[in-house]
Design a protein around this nucleic acid. Sequence first.
DNA 1: TAAGTGAGAGCGAACATTCGCTCCGGAAAG
DNA 2: CTTTCCGGAGCGAATGTTCGCTCTCACTTA
Lengths: 233, 233
Amino acid sequence: MEDLAFFEATQAEPLEAGAQTRAERRDQQIQRILEAAKNCFVRSGFQGASMQQICVECGMSPGALYRYFPSKESIVEAICEADRQDEMTCFGVLKQPQSAVEGLVEAAIAHILHTHEKGSAPLFAEMRSESMRNEAVRCTVDGHKQQIANMIAPLLKGAIERGEIDPQVDLQTLMAVVMSIGEGLAINDLPSRGVALDQLEIVLRAMIVGMLRPTGHTDGEQSSVPATFSSFG
Amino acid sequence: MEDLAFFEATQAEPLEAGAQTRAERRDQQIQRILEAAKNCFVRSGFQGASMQQICVECGMSPGALYRYFPSKESIVEAICEADRQDEMTCFGVLKQPQSAVEGLVEAAIAHILHTHEKGSAPLFAEMRSESMRNEAVRCTVDGHKQQIANMIAPLLKGAIERGEIDPQVDLQTLMAVVMSIGEGLAINDLPSRGVALDQLEIVLRAMIVGMLRPTGHTDGEQSSVPATFSSFG
DNA sequence: TAAGTGAGAGCGAACATTCGCTCCGGAAAG
DNA sequence: CTTTCCGGAGCGAATGTTCGCTCTCACTTA
């Protein structure tokens, strides 16, 4: 009962100066929680991070935190959703590409660069493994993939119509491979492992060019199914 | 106090008949624990799965289980190590390849097929995210990568000497990209998403051929650095 | 008999969540 | 303009549960 001033201090301090509406303040607090939670999740994983850690990180009591999110699970979902939307911003290149090859190369580089700069590879890895057992996270991840697929599909379809791609190639397979590759490149965060972006671009472009023009470049076998493991399927 | 026979049953049942030494029995129990733990980890993640769940899954009491593994962490490490060794078995192709292209294609397909058949994609995803915060798991994963890299490197180096690969390409970058791609393909478990293996092989071969012969196939720009994002590095 | 093995109760700690409470800004009432 | 009142915001102790792990003791086997 003696230090009533304590409450005043902690309550007023974290907010920046200036008048703001209730809703603005609320949004601000939510962002504060999400940022703190993201740090904790990157550090300890979705399951390893505790609500108490998140409380410490954002300077809130559990009671306060639960006024903004009804459960830990809901924070996880919000984080995943935010990360998904953030990652979508770097695929604007796909809307006005010079060609299918250039569109894919630029998108790949942009994706890699974005993941590297935001340091979101650990969170992405966490999302990927969580999506294998958590329904909500799986929906978010799949929705994300579907959005990207919806951007790539017309790009490749247009390229097929313009004769830039061998029409024999299965579009479904091609898209699955392209997206898997993008994922593998992003999750490995090559720039932070010392891979130079210009070198990376050279290899990626060569690879994509080869992928989109499969016939006429293989060693001697121009015909449809080239041997080795074709018996599985 | 009335059904003492129950305990006898649960204790003797899980072991198969026939005389066996103590060491044999011990190995058998360890395998039983590891298999149970793997199921639990795939279902709930390393952090989400509890020792009690593992106990139920392998029909053991905690006291018994802790006789074989000193901690949950040690089980995680053992699982990762076993998975790593298991996964290495499918890269035998890289030792006697017809060519760099064929070696990589066959290795990729074998890797994808192996991951698909063993259903080890979820465990792999879990390992990947755990490796970002767990020292021991990181060492295992990195060791695994290094082993694969050590198999791929001479393959590509030999190909360079034989003139199969453009010497301008940076070997380090090429290896990083190749391995990232393999990871992306395996973690996505394309066969279970309806991608046919023969179609996959066509796309992969075209891609690898393009990657290993970057010059002379790009559209008009044979020279070293082809434009777009080259300013980063 | 001596060593190995397993069951299951139990440990303290940590977990996600809830509780009762105080505080504060602003609207309503006087 | 003052007073009253309301509800959002915040606190931190406390809830019951579950965690990884240990202990004791009975049983089996060589």
